[in-house]
Nucleic acid binder design. Structure first.
Lengths: 250, 250
DNA sequence: TCGATTGTATTGGTCTTACATTTAATGTTA
DNA sequence: TAACATTAAATGTAAGACCAATACAATCGA
């Protein structure tokens, strides 16, 4: 006969983590706010400093807070967005569970829909941004990373336009993953992988509010891009150099 | 002129985390394997035990390892799958960034495609499983959670059938989130939210290998389900009781 | 002999104390 | 006034002790 309940099955650090995380998610601590110092938290939670640090470390790694040292230092609530999802997808890829063709298949199914929705939500402000994005692509540049960044501005703008935060979160994370892979396999002549001007037809359709055409153009763009990506990838596949490159971007 | 790079910008615990995580992702430690004990890692990394613990705590929270105490205890590599993605979506919802209609819109766009792909990949083994899943729905039950579990077996089987691990990861996580929300708002008479037999037409189409029809049936099923879900949700929206219920499932 | 109990060693969980490092703010000196 | 030194507040790291859980071996009793 077992009359009594077990006392503690959860780790103290997890309790602290849950409470801090809930406080952040509920908005009790907003972006930029500073959590109490470690010593303060040890008093409030009545646990040791090590326990508090374990909880805060988890929050930091998962992107909920950034930590600074010194006076005015501490754990500050970060503008977290897709960090957790991104690293989730990343880990799926790095562990070998997720292949590039699978990734591309999903993007190929979702992003045309994003473009379609974007065309339905077009406003003057967005029209302006899309034009700026296209112009930015043409600017001369020296750094490859910078170039890639500007080539995806159109995609990110369309994501915001589609009006669905979950689509935005998922596709944003998938684009991040694609970036990282491309950074490892991209040839010297990066213009051959993604020439400038490939977004023109998409934007044109979106600006005109033609939803279905926007979806078709997006699909067509992705198909050609993925095709090139696949060709280049084959040369590097299983190359130890590439694998370590992807890891090192951690 | 700053010719030299800073020596250490990363925290020791992050270094340890990266190395352990990479070892797991690379498959150096496989499912079920045991990481060295904390005291052993302390010696190998030449850092204090607290540093090692912070790293391991992150691995544990993110689902990469499970930890047991006692002799034969330690950090064992877990069969991690979608934990990180699931909690990522969960946090988006709990923080209020993601709404239920947005979630449903995405599911409504992706899951018909999953059903379509499943119909193309049908095998005898999967045929058998689908029939079992449908039969399981009919079995009498007492626990609501158990009932929900069995009602989604068809969805999970279709996910496996679609042959794309990323689709599986995303939709699996979204279904988990839906479950959690439903658990908070579900009425006593749970059969009204998702009556038995709603999957029959989907499975019928998949078994016949009719891809487009499978997609249509899936879409139709989700539309009616989300419609009911929406009606019920309105009654509970902003109810403090519900919000805390969702949090408590953490 | 068998079974229950007890001891024991190992491993994670927590606490404490001390010191190092970083850094904003303040004070001080040339 | 500007450059430099001091201070203090916060995180970062280290080391040691002890608690808690538990698999396994040893012991004891019927």
């Amino acid at each position: 006969m077992n009359k009594f309940k077990p006392i503690k099955q959860t780790r103290a650090s997890e309790e602290v983590l849950v409470q801090l995380k809930e406080a952040i998610l509920r908005g009790h601590y907003k972006f930029g706010d500073k959590l109490p110092s470690e010593r303060e938290l040890t008093e409030q939670f009545q646990v040791s400093r090590g326990v508090v640090r374990e909880a805060i470390r988890v929050l930091q790694i998962n992107g909920f807070v950034v930590i600074r040292q010194g006076p005015t230092g501490g754990a500050y609530v970060a503008e977290w967005a897709f960090d957790q999802l991104s690293s989730g997808f990343m880990d799926l890829y790095l562990s070998g569970r997720l292949t590039i063709p699978e990734l591309n298949q999903v993007r190929l199914h979702i992003e045309p829909e994003v473009a379609r929705l974007a065309a339905l939500n077009v406003t003057d402000a967005f029209r302006q941004r899309l034009k700026e994005d296209l112009a930015a692509e043409r600017e001369p540049t020296t750094f490859r990373a910078d170039y890639r960044q500007r080539l995806t501005r159109v995609h990110f703008t369309l994501l915001e336009m589609c009006g669905n935060y979950l689509f935005e979160a998922i596709v944003n994370s998938m684009i991040s993953l694609t970036h990282r892979i491309v950074a490892a396999i991209e040839p010297e002549d990066h213009n051959s992988l993604h020439p400038v001007g490939e977004h023109d037809l998409i934007v044109e359709a979106v600006l005109a509010g033609e939803a279905d055409r926007a979806a078709r153009e997006m699909r067509s763009h992705l198909e050609t891009f993925f095709h090139r990506m696949h060709d280049i990838d084959e040369a590097f596949r299983l190359s130890p150099a590439m694998v370590s490159t992807v890891f090192q971007q951690g």
